[in-house]
Amino acid sequence: MNDLNILLAGFGGQGILFTGKVIAYAGLMEGKEVSWLPSYGPEMRGGTANCSVCLSENKIGSPLVTNPDVLVAMNLPSLEKFENDVVPGGIIIVDSSIIAKKVQRTDVKTIYIPASEIAEENGIKGAANMVILGKLFKETCFCSEENLDKGLQKTIPPKKMDLLDKNRLCIKLGREN
């Protein structure tokens, strides 16, 4: 796999930062150089959150992803804000249960996945981020299956370890849908 710059964006509370951290940890398990950078400050309290994740074979320069290889958009403002920044040939993953609008770009691969619906149908409301992670994993193979699971285990706080299997299920659903 080549270097991968990922930008995840959505509302606060959708688990954007958490998802980024799972990816970064999985990358670390894979032996890559990794970085994770959140948006911070009042902007977060205003309801939007985004997070840059870089995975590389080499030393990472700027951790701020301005031209992502992969954009994950979990709300409409994020899609509108970042769509044009994606590198040609890149990937845009859209939670289609939240965003009705279609991607205008034709030079990128667009994946629509009703992540929120899928999570809810399977009784795990609020885990759309993990469904998307599963999809992202399937599309980019940024690490081994084993390391993805290790990344997940490293990221879930010890007190919330009872949610591990539910998260695993959502990742699986994302890969299959």
């Binding site: 951290k21 990794v34 970085s35 994770w36 950078l37 959140p38 911070y40 990472i60 951790p63 701020l64």
Partner: peptide, 10 residues
């Protein structure tokens, strides 16, 4: 700075 302070790295 805010970048180095907020980012996560191994």
């Amino acid at each position: 700075d805010g970048l180095l302070g907020q980012m996560m790295e191994p």
